[in-house]
Design a protein around this nucleic acid. Structure first.
Length: 517
RNA sequence: GCGGGCGUAGCUCAGUGGUAGAGCGUCAGCCUUCCAAGCUGAACGUCGAGGGUUCGAAUCCCUUCGCCCGCUCCA
């Protein structure tokens, strides 16, 4: 095996060539930050979404028992992209994460407006007269450097926020700049897309495209509890498109402005939340491994204390080493312990009680029941990016081996591979195509719903195998002259190129076993 | 947003002022009893887009869009 380092350019070329990923609005020159999926990509992503749905909602964690010793219980939900604008105020997406930035024209540095401070004379900024005043960012090298300069200029200095200095800042020297007047006015970065529902365009009706699917779940926590007999602990899963107006869309589909999430909000009693957090963190890692990301390119990274959101007890990221992040890693999924932050926020903002009445807790009553306990559940949130997942699967699968007749191929796990199997007549004559057609009908009937089944008798067999390798089809079944005599076919394994003979009536059984369906 | 690179056939790229090219892929035919991705032939181009200079622009100039890399950002 002569494995060459993986080139992102080569992977992107293959994605286009074989119809995995196209640039959105390609024929109009594309649109920054948006990508579409071609036939194979659409099916690959659907397989990934389907695997998530199966393993998270329908048969959660493959039947693995939770920390409470019980089967894990989850239900699905499907919520709208557009919700009431107040949802995003409650969640903190409006206001909190919408930070104005200032740029420095000299150094090309970019700073959060609210982080920039200025050293002025002890008597206040006005006392500086025509002299420059010195901006800095706390805990950065600029802090001591600028302080020294300021003290040299003014003697005793005071520190004030940049926002207190009237614009334009012609006398302000940027934190890392030499000359004054290089800072731009603060600019807002619009991180949420907005839109205006209703026939009449009125800013007062502004609504947002959701930046995450999670909030839809919190909004319906009570509805789900009241309508579906779920009891704590349980999870609610929600998949769908989300939108973030990324400052810099980059790295192929990795940071897109429109993307798809698969999020689970798992609600539990505060006392059990740590155990559930660890449970989900470990399962999610195992899950990604199970669909083909096993190996050193996948890591679980526990966030440091100072990285955590103020409400979070713990957060881990499942990270994959993409060719464009190597030797670093890029986030595939975040597993966050969110405490009761979200439900509390929505309870406050909506003024609707989102407490849960837990009849399994509280003191024992004489009649053998429990008194019950009211609380706002804690939430564990495994939030996966499906587009990032699909990209990681492709990157991991992409293999180059120049010793093979098909040097480029995709070692996709059979469960996610968009083409599940190919049926080939070795030659387009002697009755072989007819046998192949019959077998293909049978395989279609049984597996066609899970992915594409190819049936092709044209061109040389090597060419057809190579084509399947490049598309990541795991198995090719070939009908030859022996098939006509003894009812056997060859099965070719994509990764090894090796063949074995099995009975033609064993093909479906073989696929059932290998595809993990 | 800034800086750098790039944009020509489905893909990879050559073409620096004078008739738009190659390899691969695709399709057809041939051949072929398992890697033959072989042989022959065919189809396929707003040279990213718009404007300008010029007798003449893929090529020079301006504007713009997109991709990649670095910085920055990333709920």
């Amino acid at each position: 095996m002569t494995a060459a380092p993986k080139s992102m350019d080569a992977i992107m070329a293959l994605c286009k060539r074989r119809g995995f990923v196209f640039q959105a609005s390609d024929i109009y020159g594309g649109i920054n930050g948006f990508w579409d999926y071609g036939p194979l990509g659409a099916q690959l992503k659907k397989n990934l979404r389907e695997a998530w749905w199966q393993d998270m909602i329908m048969n959660p964690c493959w039947g693995r028992k939770g920390p409470n010793g019980q089967r894990v219980q989850c239900v699905p939900l499907e919520t709208c992209i557009i919700q009431h604008p107040k949802v995003w105020e409650a969640s903190g997406h409006v206001g909190g994460f919408n930070d104005p930035m200032v740029d420095c024209k000299e150094t090309k540095g970019r700073y959060r407006y609210d982080h920039v401070m200025v050293y002025v004379p002890a008597g206040g900024a006005a006392a500086a007269g025509d002299k420059p005043i010195f901006a800095y960012v706390g805990d950065q090298p600029s802090e001591t450097k600028q302080k020294k300069k300021a003290e040299k200029t003014f003697g005793e200095v005071a520190s004030v926020a940049l926002s207190t200095i009237p614009q334009p800042w012609t006398r302000v020297i940027g934190p890392d700049a030499e000359k004054p007047g290089t800072l731009t006015e603060p600019r807002m970065f619009n991180l949420m897309f907005d839109t205006i529902p209703g026939a009449i365009r009125d800013e007062a009706n502004k609504a947002y495209l959701r930046p995450e699917t999670a909030q839809g779940v919190f909004l319906h926590f009570k509805n789900v509890v009241d309508s579906s007999r779920v009891r704590i602990p349980f999870g609610i899963g929600n998949t769908g498109r989300s939108f973030r107006n990324e400052v810099t869309p980059r790295n192929f589909t990795f940071r897109s402005r429109e993307f798809e999430q698969a999020e689970l909000e798992f609600f539990c009693h505060p006392d059990e939340s740590k155990a559930w957090y660890e449970f989900w963190r470990d399962f999610r890692m195992d899950w990604w491994k199970s669909i083909g990301l096993a190996g050193e390119n996948l890591i679980l990274r526990e966030h440091d204390k100072d990285e955590l959101s103020h409400y979070s007890v713990g957060t881990s990221d499942v990270e994959y080493r993409f060719p464009f992040t190597a030797p670093g890693f890029g986030e595939l999924e975040g597993i966050a312990h969110r405490g009761n932050y979200d439900l509390t926020q929505h309870q406050t903002h909506s003024k609707v009680k989102l407490e849960y009445y837990d009849t399994t807790r509280g003191e024992l009553l004489p009649n053998g029941g429990r008194k019950g306990e009211r609380y706002i559940p804690h939430c564990i949130e495994p939030a996966a990016g499906l587009d990032r997942g699909a990209l990681a699967l492709i990157c991991e699968a992409y293999t180059r081996d120049d010793t093979r007749p098909s040097p480029e191929f995709l070692k996709l796990h059979p469960r996610v591979a968009p083409i599940k199997a190919a049926i080939f007549a070795l030659m387009d004559k002697d009755g072989m195509p007819e046998v192949a057609d019959k077998l293909a009908d049978e395989v279609f009937a049984k597996f066609g719903r899970y992915g594409f089944i190819e049936n092709d008798a044209k061109q040389s067999i090597g060419k057809r195998y190579a084509r399947m390798d490049e598309a990541g089809c795991p198995f090719c079944f070939t009908i030859d002259s022996d098939t006509l005599k003894d009812q056997t076919v060859t099965v070719r394994d994509r990764d090894t190129g090796q063949q074995q003979r099995i009975g033609i009536d064993k093909v479906c059984g073989f696929l059932t076993e290998k595809l993990g369906l």
